[in-house]
Simulated assay, not measured.
Amino acid sequence: MSNWPDWFQEALRQRFYQLELASEQQASCSSEDNNLFTQMNQFKTDQNEDIQRLLSEWEEAIGDQLSQDKQSIYMEGVKDGIQLLLPVIHSTNIR
């Protein structure tokens, strides 16, 4: 990476720093999520079959939405990467 412009290296450092912070925040919520998941399963078990089915459908819908959100975040990351690389690629083609 030593041949890359300073601004590019700094942009990468900042981006990885942001990702690291987001990852740490997500990890701290992980135990809370596990606790809620356990409570939800217990609640669902205590319900009749119709309510269990509705709750399962709801969980599936939420899971689908989360998958779509994660895919959207991934695509934004790809776009960020392309925006960072394009100026570097164009500058090396000009030389």
Rank of each mutant, 00 (worst) to 15 (best):
R13S: 00
R13H: 02
Q14I: 10
R15Q: 06
F16M: 10
Y17W: 11
Q18C: 05
Q18D: 00
E20W: 10
L21Y: 06
L21H: 03
A22F: 01
S23F: 02
E24K: 03
E24S: 10
Q25R: 09
Q25M: 10
Q26I: 07
Q26T: 05
A27I: 08
S28Y: 04
C29K: 04
S31C: 06
E32N: 02
N34F: 08
T38C: 14
Q39P: 01
Q39M: 13
M40W: 08
M40H: 08
N41Y: 05
F43I: 07
K44Y: 01
T45P: 05
T45F: 08
T45V: 14
D46A: 15
E49R: 12
E49M: 11
D50P: 06
D50F: 08
I51H: 06
I51G: 08
Q52I: 15
L54W: 12
S56F: 07
E57G: 05
W58G: 04
W58A: 12
W58V: 11
E59N: 12
E59S: 00
E60P: 02
I62T: 02
I62H: 08
G63R: 15
D64I: 09
D64P: 05
D64M: 13
Q65A: 11
Q65Y: 10
L66H: 13
S67V: 12
S67H: 15
S67C: 13
Q68C: 13
Q68A: 15
D69V: 14
D69P: 09
D69H: 14
K70F: 14
Q71W: 00
S72T: 15
Y74A: 13
Y74T: 09
Y74R: 07
M75C: 10
M75V: 12
M75E: 05
E76A: 15
E76K: 15
V78T: 01
V78L: 11
K79Y: 07
G81C: 03
I82S: 06
I82M: 06
Q83N: 05
Q83P: 01
L84I: 05
L84N: 01
L84S: 05
L85H: 03
L85G: 00
L85C: 00
L85A: 03
L86R: 07
L86P: 00
L86E: 04
P87K: 08
P87W: 04
V88I: 07
H90I: 14
S91E: 06
S91K: 14
